[in-house]
Amino acid sequence: MSKICKDGFDREYVKEQREVYGIAYTQNALSGRWKYLILWFLKPTERRYSEIKAFLWNISQGSLTKQLRELEADGLISRKVYPEVPPRVEYSLTSKGEELIPIIDLMEEFGKKFGEHVD
């Protein structure tokens, strides 16, 4: 349905599909198995790479790095490198990323309501 190239959405698609562009844009920004959970985990505070990796214990280092880079490229998270030895890197939500938190919260509530209950 959505025509996405390496530079974003095809202009013709945007013109022809204005009514669904917003959904397609949001879906594209959140596409990736782990992005929802990364954003949720960053919700309360900034986190170091090792904290995110520990939270998502079964993600490969390559996948986590890719997901973080994509979230940063889309302007949803920021990456701050501290000039220390060894270097310390922290990730946090941007204001754009914070705008997605109500959607993530709704997803959490939906899952609690309709997902399997774990005792």
Rank of each mutant, 00 (worst) to 15 (best):
G8E: 02
E12A: 12
L68V: 08
A73Y: 12
I59P: 00
K6I: 03
R47Y: 00
G111Q: 08
I59G: 00
E116F: 10
L64H: 00
D74I: 06
N58C: 01
I101Q: 12
D7M: 07
Y36G: 13
P87A: 03
E109Q: 11
E12T: 11
S63V: 08
K66E: 09
E51W: 04
Y36E: 13
E72N: 08
R18G: 14
R18F: 06
I101L: 15
V81N: 03
E19H: 10
D105E: 15
D74N: 15
Q27P: 00
Q27S: 06
L100H: 04
Y25T: 09
K53E: 05
I52R: 02
E90I: 08
E116P: 11
Q67V: 01
S2C: 15
Q27A: 06
S92C: 06
P44A: 08
W34V: 02
K80A: 05
I104N: 01
I103A: 13
Q61E: 13
D119I: 10
D7G: 07
I23L: 14
C5G: 09
W40S: 13
G75I: 10
Q17A: 13
N58A: 04
S95T: 13
L100T: 03
S2K: 11
D7T: 11
S92F: 02
E109W: 08
E90Y: 09
L68N: 05
A24T: 14
E99H: 07
L106N: 03
E99D: 10
Q27H: 05
K66S: 14
E84D: 11
L106W: 00
S95W: 04
S63A: 14
E84A: 14
L93P: 00
F110Y: 13
N58W: 03
Y21M: 12
Y82V: 05
E72H: 05
E99K: 12
A29T: 06
Q27Y: 08
I52W: 00
K112Y: 03
W40Q: 15
A24S: 15
I4E: 07
H117W: 03
G115Q: 07
D119F: 09
L68Y: 06
I59D: 00
K35S: 05
M1E: 14
K15P: 01
P83A: 04
K80L: 11
S60W: 01
I23E: 11
Q27R: 10
E116D: 14
K66H: 13
S92T: 08
V85W: 13
G8T: 02
L71K: 01
M107L: 09
I77K: 01
Q27E: 08
R79V: 11
F9A: 01
R33V: 13
M1K: 14
E16I: 11
Q67R: 01
I104Q: 03
I59S: 00
V81H: 07
I59E: 00
G75A: 07
S50P: 04
P83R: 13
E46I: 06
V20I: 15
R18Y: 04
S78C: 08
A54E: 12
K96Q: 13
F110M: 05
W40C: 08
E109G: 06
M1A: 14
D7E: 10
K43S: 15
W57E: 09
G22C: 04
G97D: 02
L100A: 02
L76C: 02
E90Q: 05
